[in-house]
């Protein structure tokens, strides 16, 4: 087994940043409401990773608690959000995000 040097914590943070940016990109370039929603979850996950990383850095578990709360909120958000998506789908018959713009008209 090759011996590798230990990973600095900043790599974790950079990974978190990359995932976050990918989440934003998904939000901007995906057209299905569900996928856009999943991109939001991806962003939340990225933020959770940075919480846990900072927790490791500071040797305090507050970051864990925050990410726990983020998870719970994400669960609530998923329940309500998916219910909304279902309702939109029932009303509109479409999941394309650009076609749900009746607030404009």
């Amino acid at each position: 087994m090759p011996h590798l040097p230990p990973v600095p914590l900043s790599w974790y943070l950079v990974l978190s940043a990359i995932l976050f940016v990918l989440g934003v990109a998904g939000f901007l370039y995906r057209k299905s409401i569900i996928t856009v929603f999943m991109s939001i979850e991806l962003m939340l996950n990225a933020v959770n990773l940075s919480f846990v990383s900072f927790s490791y850095q500071l040797r305090r578990i507050d970051g864990h608690i925050y990410s726990f709360f983020v998870m719970v909120v994400a669960a609530a958000e998923a329940a309500v959000g998916l219910a909304i998506i279902l309702t939109v789908f029932k009303n509109r018959g479409t999941l394309q995000i650009d076609e749900v713009d009746s607030m404009k008209r």
């Binding site: 934003v24 939000f27 901007l28 370039y29 856009v36 995000i97 650009d98 749900v100 713009d101 009746s102 607030m103 404009k104 008209r105």
Partner: peptide, 14 residues
Amino acid sequence: WQSGSIRNYATWIL
């Protein structure tokens, strides 16, 4: 500005 396109808004937020 109110284009009605969520993705445009998101870009502004970004």
